[in-house]
Design a protein around this nucleic acid. Structure first.
Length: 103
DNA sequence: GTTGTGACTAGTG
DNA sequence: ACACTAGCCACAA
């Protein structure tokens, strides 16, 4: 069911600390669907803004940001995220590795 | 049931 | 760095 997976993703995204980022793959793994990284992206696009999730802290494995979303860069900069020269997030510094062993 | 789509990932050139 | 491919999954039409 999408609702359950989405809920898991939202719940995790909500826990992302300030100044940190997380990849779709990690998020998918934490949501107990390691292969569904694409669904994480869909979940982020469909996320109700009312939930006030820090979806701007979710990036892909390369540290690339969501396409056609100029705001994300500014939001991350405000959070204290640093970018490389090419504009990608410095994953090594800000990647969120706090694995929560649900189950 | 099949097809097209995507805010993905890893690999290759 | 970029472009492309193949694998992957769930959803919408």
């Amino acid at each position: 069911m999408k609702a359950d997976f989405y809920t898991e993703v939202y719940n995790i995204v909500r826990e992302i600390p300030e100044g940190c980022v997380v990849t779709y793959g990690q998020l998918a793994k934490l949501a107990r669907r390691p292969q569904c990284s694409r669904m994480v992206g869909q979940a982020m696009f469909n996320v109700p803004k009312e939930l006030n999730l820090p979806c701007h802290r979710v990036v892909n494995s390369q540290g690339r940001l969501a396409p056609n979303w100029a705001e994300q860069r500014g939001l991350l900069e405000k959070e204290g995220i640093t970018f490389k020269k090419n504009g990608c997030v410095d994953l090594k510094k800000h990647i969120w590795e706090d694995i929560l062993p649900i189950i």
